[in-house]
Amino acid sequence: MKTKFTMVVPTIKLYDYLIVPIQIELDDLTIEKLQMQLLNEISEKKIRGIILDVSMVDVIDSYISFVLSETAAMAKAMGCHTVICKIQPQVALTLAQMGIKLKDVFTANSLEGAVDILNRLD
């Protein structure tokens, strides 16, 4: 099968969920490419729920969280929910202190928790 998009992050399809373990430094270009990649995968693979595992991400600043929320809103428009799981505790503190809220995004502290949330939403 031919892929029309460039892959930035390898993803795993589980039932109609897409698990996205982000294990790279999220710079501005990467996260924008990731956004396009995910939207394309949602449509091509008929994904109903995306799980973003950010346990390896050390810094989430206002722009990265903006793009994450934006991606979730776009996914929502395509009928797909987004769960962000395993945010590092110090990253969560930083986001909270900056007053950043992740809109249109569910959060979970484990992969199982994320799957539970998506199952409940169906």
Binding site: L95, L102, F106, A108, S110, G113
Partner: peptide
């Protein structure tokens, strides 16, 4: 308040 929103971000 920040602590509570951080806890929410972790999904709890």
């Amino acid at each position: 308040i920040e602590m509570f929103s951080a806890v929410k971000l972790l999904g709890s």
